[in-house]
Simulated scan of single mutants.
Amino acid sequence: MDEFGACRVVRQRSFASPSGSKLVVVVWKECGATVPDSTQASIVARGRTFSPENTPTFLSVREHQDVLVAWSSEQAVRIGFIPGTVQIYKRERSAGGVTINYD
């Protein structure tokens, strides 16, 4: 965070779909003392590189959260949190051709 207003993105985990053709990538975004940290998730197709600037997020929640990801098929994934309730900024129901269900 050398520049004023710059954010740091720390990749936490990746969760592959059953065939490995897609990944759910979970990151922590840290932007300094004036902006709360967040946990974000994106879907990335095989062969593509995750980029915080160019990969759209389907989920963004306040602070660092442990995210549970369970693929039920190539087109459906379940997302949960430990310990549970969090402040949600963004929660899409689909992304990249995948239906997203939340627990």
Rank of each mutant, 00 (worst) to 15 (best):
M1W: 02
D2G: 14
D2E: 15
E3T: 12
E3V: 07
F4C: 11
F4R: 11
C7N: 12
C7P: 06
C7S: 15
V9Q: 13
V9K: 02
V9R: 09
V9H: 09
R11I: 02
Q12L: 09
Q12T: 10
Q12N: 11
R13W: 06
S14V: 04
F15Y: 14
F15D: 11
P18L: 03
S19V: 02
S19M: 02
G20V: 02
S21A: 13
S21P: 00
S21W: 00
K22T: 01
L23Y: 01
L23T: 01
V24F: 00
V25G: 12
V25C: 04
V26N: 04
V27I: 13
V27C: 13
E30T: 11
C31M: 04
C31W: 04
C31H: 00
G32A: 09
G32T: 06
A33C: 05
T34G: 04
P36A: 11
P36S: 14
S38K: 07
T39S: 13
T39W: 02
Q40F: 02
S42M: 01
I43S: 11
I43C: 08
I43M: 05
V44H: 07
R46V: 10
R46W: 08
R46Y: 11
R46H: 03
R46A: 15
G47W: 06
G47M: 10
R48L: 10
T49Y: 04
T49M: 09
F50K: 03
S51G: 11
E53L: 06
N54L: 12
T55W: 01
T55Y: 03
P56W: 03
P56R: 09
T57L: 12
F58M: 05
L59F: 12
S60F: 03
S60K: 15
V61D: 09
V61T: 12
R62N: 14
E63Y: 06
E63F: 02
E63P: 02
Q65R: 09
V67E: 12
V67R: 11
L68K: 14
L68A: 14
V69A: 04
W71F: 10
S72E: 15
S73N: 10
S73Q: 08
E74W: 00
E74R: 01
Q75G: 12
Q75T: 14
A76C: 11
V77P: 06
V77C: 01
R78E: 15
R78D: 15
R78K: 12
R78A: 15
I79R: 03
G80D: 15
G80T: 05
F81L: 07
G84E: 08
V86R: 05
V86L: 00
V86C: 07
Q87R: 07
I88Y: 00
Y89F: 13
Y89T: 06
K90Q: 15
K90M: 12
E92Y: 11
E92N: 10
R93Y: 00
S94D: 11
A95V: 06
G97I: 01
G97A: 08
V98Y: 07
V98Q: 10
I100K: 08
N101M: 05
N101K: 08
N101T: 15
Y102A: 08
